[in-house]
Amino acid sequence: MAAKNGVKGDRPRKIGYYPGCSLTSSAKEMEDSFMEMAKMFSLEVVTMEDWNCCGSSPAHSTNHGYALLLAGRNLLLAEEQGIQELMVMCPSCFVRLKEAERKLMEDEEKNRLLESVLGRRYGGGVRLRFFLEVLNDLKMDEFQSKIRTPLTGLKGALYYGCLLTRPEWITGFDVGPYEKFLEGVVRTLGAEAVHWGYSRQCCGAHLAVTKADFVDRMVDRIRDHARRAGANCLVTFCPLCQVNLELRGNGVEPLPVFYISELIGLAAGLPKSRSWLKKHLIDPQPLLRSLGVLS
């Protein structure tokens, strides 16, 4: 964990950003709320130019070449654009880019393939960073000083899903060492972080579309366990988890599902935070009003 009252300049003031498809559409409020938070902490976030889809599950599920080259092109472009640190917010995009990075750096044949298709090689000049690592660089006392409306009465079940919770040697990021920090953030905002056992269960990912009934049951189990633990909302870190937890499930009373950055914006009283709340499929406003967080 970073030193207390850290010296200025020990964290980046400018970082490159790879959005990915969800963050520009169905998870736009995840992006917006993070950007507003970054502004609040004077972190400059620069979106990389001409990024393309990382390939997601459909690419690696059907053709390893597509997966390598789609993700690889983004690494190439970031390197050419002089981006030293590239932040990714979607866990799936992060894992796809990280996987391509590993293959390109470890397997000469893969880099030759990239060169044969796109005319240039990847030199390894970009450091990929998951957004929770960037969040962790911001100090807890900085959060404290920004709070205008404490989220008193909000009891969040922090839900990490699948890709965040695998060992670092598989995915390049493991939420394990960050869990205490994230619970601390939630408490600093004035909310509670409940203890529960389902934070690492899968949300059903793309089966939510193709096997809806099956994923309904998965989401119901998650909601049920969150409710039993006394939560009145779920807190997510992934665009797909957020949509699935709102969209699926039919047997258990639904819970509002927030992105962590939305909660930070809400507690900081950012004017835009109201507009994010209106985009939710499960309207969180009645809960927030009943707690006096929204007037």
């Binding site: 599950s57 690696h60 599920s61 699948c162 890709l163 695998r166 060992p167 598989i170 995915t171 899968c202 059903g204 990912a205 793309h206 089966l207 096997k211």
Partner: peptide
Amino acid sequence: WICLGCFSCLA
């Protein structure tokens, strides 16, 4: 086709 690639098995 059902496998989601969540890496639970590998972990």
